[in-house]
């Protein structure tokens, strides 16, 4: 069983929801990422989503855009991100790591070369924001051949026929974008999310994560009641932005925010 499947199976047995923090690799500095990853696991993260910096993050709000800019100021490339995962794996063989980013850096590296290097580094899943399954055959085949789960987004605008198509191509879990907007937006409707999750679950047995708009323990807990995983990104990245030159302080704040979320999600 893959690391991702193992995590979801254990959580299901204990009746808990996965907490998935997102941070951009190399933000605010390449040296900060490895300790941050370990600190997040310690604070209760079940899976880590590691953002691959890109110059044109079209689906991201201002907070994560600036995270990319800070990382790119240190020239953090896709291969550097995979190196970070490799170093994380030296001491952690259980927490799944999902790379999240845009297609072009992978396109330039080559699908096969990327998949092979990612698998060697210990990457478990790949979420490419700007590749719908219609264009994704080559990339999906390449990562699956190396045992990496292709993770796809579903949106409020996804109709049933697309949900079926996307969940057929996906493995590991699917990621429901809880609102029409970019990352970090704030107008989340719990009822609308609940209805859509019910529709998605009639199409797939895969775990369904929810992200975009989860900013504190209360929203995390309310989502945890209806989803299999809760993804939190901009709220964590804001802690880095507030402490741009003090990585240990940022890591501390991210740790406490995750612990609060974890406690609220597990029922207090």
């Amino acid at each position: 069983m893959s690391r991702i499947a193992t995590v979801f199976s254990a959580l299901r047995d204990s009746g808990r929801t996965a907490l998935i923090p997102f941070v951009t690799a190399g933000d605010p500095h390449p040296d900060a990422t490895l300790p941050l990853m370990h600190a997040m696991v310690e604070a209760g993260a079940d899976i880590i989503e590691l953002g691959v910096p890109f110059s044109d993050p079209m689906a991201d709000g201002p907070v994560i855009q600036r995270a990319s800019e800070r990382a790119l100021a240190h020239h953090v490339a896709l291969s550097d991100v995979m190196d970070m995962v490799g170093r994380f794996r030296e001491t952690n063989q259980t927490t799944p790591v999902v790379l999240m980013g845009y297609l072009n850096p992978i396109e330039v590296m080559g699908y096969r070369r990327f998949a092979e290097q990612a698998a060697v580094a210990g990457v478990d899943g790949l979420l490419t924001v700007d590749i719908p399954p219609e264009e994704g055959d080559g990339l999906v085949a390449a990562v699956k051949a190396c045992g990496i789960d292709p993770i796809f987004l579903l949106a409020p605008t996804s109709k049933r026929v697309r949900i079926e198509r996307i969940t057929r191509a996906a493995s590991g879990f699917v990621y429901y974008v809880s609102l029409k907007g970019v990352t970090g937006a704030a107008n989340l409707s719990l009822d609308a999310v609940r209805d859509k999750l019910a529709e998605i679950r009639t199409c797939t047995k895969l775990p369904v994560g929810v992200g975009f708009g989860i900013k504190d323990a209360a929203t995390a807990a309310s989502m945890a009641a209806i989803a299999d995983a809760v993804v939190v990104g901009s709220a964590l990245v804001s802690c880095i932005e507030d402490n741009p030159t003090d990585a240990p302080a940022a890591i501390d704040r991210i740790g406490s925010l995750l612990r609060e979320m974890r406690r609220a999600m597990d029922g207090g």
Partner: peptide
């Protein structure tokens, strides 16, 4: 699907597909 040889296509986040 919008292809000119290997070029073109649709490479956007899921929300924009509809």
């Amino acid at each position: 699907r919008g292809h000119f040889g290997p070029y073109g296509g649709i490479f956007v986040a899921e929300t924009l597909m509809a």
